[in-house]
Simulated assay, not measured.
Amino acid sequence: MKIYYNGEFLNDHEVKISPFDHGFLYGLGVFETFRIYNGHPFLLFDHLKRLRKSLKELKIEWNLLDEEIQTILRELIERNEIKDAYIRLNISAGEGEIGLYTGEYTNPNTIIFIKPMHESNIVEKEGVILNTPRNSPEGKQRLKSHHYLNNIIGKREIGSSPSVEGIFLTKEGFLSEGIVSNLFFIKQDKLYTPHVDTGILNGITRQFVIQWAKSKNISVEEGFYKEEDLLNADEIFISNSIQEIIPVTTIGEHFFKVNRNSLMKELQKDYRFYRESLLSMTEIERSEQK
């Protein structure tokens, strides 16, 4: 598989990372994962906007423009002969002396991974309330960073089945998010999702869902909820940029039916409609006004 590494397109086994990279030594790096649908990088500009905000917070200087990333992605697609793909765009701080560094990083490492991505046969999931609490963010808000130990511990708790998603609670007992997803539930045609102040990652697909709901005049509430709020919901679903929108139909002994005319069904339909055209979720409102 050909991947992009610091200006070059290399075979994946040719890429070498220095042991002095502070992304390796101290977890100082961030990434974005998103999908290519029929050659189109869905919500690419939103992912890049979040990436740059995170890099600025970490004092990592990164100068690739949106148009340059689009060109790189087209080249990766062509070289690997892939139309539908998983992309991971990874930026690490780059090499430095051993020890905690507080200055600017001006020579980061950029790697863009690609692999084929096909339609999943998983149409629903089982939710498991985790015993492992969600850790608090390292800073003011959670970044999509290399710090994934909490997620890995949660994943080990539920096992490797792709049809099961663990749901974290905060140490205070509030709902937060899935191991690799954001959490939503529906009650009487109103949409609920944990507030970012619970320490969750503000996922791009999460933001898309909220933007979509507002464009449809659907009430959305971001707040602090307990497990019983979730278990009393009419419907539950999780979201992320790779798995899209997936209903959660069981949690323990509780079952949740997906209604034929539910908001979730409408959301899934619109998501499929937009995924080969949108570069930014701000285009949703303009599309709805046409």
Rank of each mutant, 00 (worst) to 15 (best):
G7D: 07
G7E: 08
L10N: 06
V15N: 05
S18G: 12
F34L: 07
G39M: 05
G39Q: 07
D46G: 12
K49C: 08
R52G: 09
K56W: 10
L58T: 03
E61G: 07
L64D: 13
T71H: 09
E75D: 12
E81N: 14
I87H: 06
L89F: 14
E97G: 15
I98L: 15
Y105S: 03
I112G: 01
I112W: 00
M117P: 10
N121D: 14
L130C: 03
T132D: 09
P133G: 05
P133R: 04
R134Y: 05
S136K: 15
E138V: 12
G139D: 06
H147S: 15
Y148S: 10
N151W: 02
N151H: 11
I152M: 12
I153L: 15
I158C: 11
P162A: 06
G173S: 12
I179A: 13
S181K: 03
N182Y: 06
F185L: 03
K187S: 11
T198M: 04
T198R: 01
R206E: 00
R206W: 00
Q211I: 06
W212F: 11
K216A: 12
N217W: 07
S219W: 10
E221N: 12
E222F: 05
E227D: 08
E227F: 07
A233W: 01
A233T: 04
N240K: 07
I245S: 02
I246H: 06
V248D: 01
T249G: 09
I251A: 11
G252C: 11
G252A: 12
K257L: 14
N259P: 08
S262Q: 03
L263K: 01
L263E: 02
E266Y: 08
Q268V: 08
K269C: 10
F273S: 09
E276D: 13
T282G: 10
I284R: 01
S287Q: 08
E288Y: 14
